[in-house]
């Protein structure tokens, strides 16, 4: 939240209905919330819905904001709930996979041991590779993806991620580890093939 970190928003002014202050808050937090929507839902229309609903909701519930958590945590909590609700509306079927990944060790043990980490940056970040990275993130079960997006993409601390998602810190760490392992495995398939092609040339 680079904008947000440098912009001090007055909670009192917000509570007193100061529209200019609300507009400042919207500008300070729009970018990270829009990004969260993009990463969680995978398209700009849904990300825009998450963005609008988050601030509409914030406007309605400003009076309930007690200041026990930071403004950023509060807004992220609303945004993550909006994103999850939208995802569930779009995919109403109960997703058993999301539940299983929580407790079982399944999928945690690595299977691919190709060291692609030393491939040069320009090969790791071609347009095609970026799409592969986005596809890998999009394939994560939603509970893992949310923890991963908050911690690894938005660089929010484990403690704040736990507050946002109403989980224990240890639960966040478990989800994060699983998410990272799943992504590593998928990127290993992708970059492993590239490495093989390169060696064959």
């Amino acid at each position: 939240m680079s904008n947000a970190e440098t912009t001090k928003i007055s909670i009192d002014a917000l509570r007193n209905g100061d529209r200019a202050e609300f507009a400042r808050m919207v500008d300070a937090y729009s970018a990270p919330i829009y990004r969260l929507g993009l990463k969680m839902l995978g398209n700009s229309q849904d990300a825009e819905d998450v963005l609008q609903n988050t601030f509409l909701n914030a406007l309605t519930h400003l009076a309930d904001f007690q200041g026990r958590s930071s403004l950023s945590t509060w807004l992220y909590r609303i945004a993550s709930n909006e994103a999850l609700m939208l995802m569930r509306r779009k995919k109403p079927a109960f997703n058993i996979e999301d539940v299983q990944t929580e407790d079982s060790d399944e999928g945690l043990m690595p299977e691919i041991f190709v060291d692609w980490s030393l491939l040069p940056e320009d090969e790791l970040l071609t347009g095609e590779s970026k799409s592969a990275i986005d596809r890998a993130i999009a394939s994560l079960p939603e509970n893992l993806r949310m923890a991963f997006v908050l911690r690894d993409i938005e660089d929010i601390s484990i403690k704040e991620t736990a507050e946002i998602l109403n989980l224990t810190e240890s639960n966040v760490k478990t989800r994060l580890l699983r998410a990272r392992m799943v992504l590593r495995e998928q990127l290993s398939v992708y970059y492993g093939e590239r490495l093989t092609r390169k060696e064959e040339k």
């Binding site: 729009s30 970018a31 829009y34 990004r35 993009l38 700009s44 825009e48 963005l51 690595p110 041991f113 190709v114 060291d115 692609w116 980490s117 030393l118 790791l124 970040l125 990275i133 993130i137 690894d152 993409i153 660089d155 990272r180 392992m181 992504l183 590593r184 990127l187 290993s188």
Partner: peptide
């Protein structure tokens, strides 16, 4: 290998996003 590639995976997803800002029309 798992350590190196996991670190790299995290680096890659953290690379600055091209569309950092909210588009004007949005």
């Amino acid at each position: 290998v798992v350590l190196n590639t996991t670190k790299r995976t995290i680096d890659l997803v953290q690379m600055p996003v091209e569309q950092e800002e909210v588009p004007d029309d949005v």
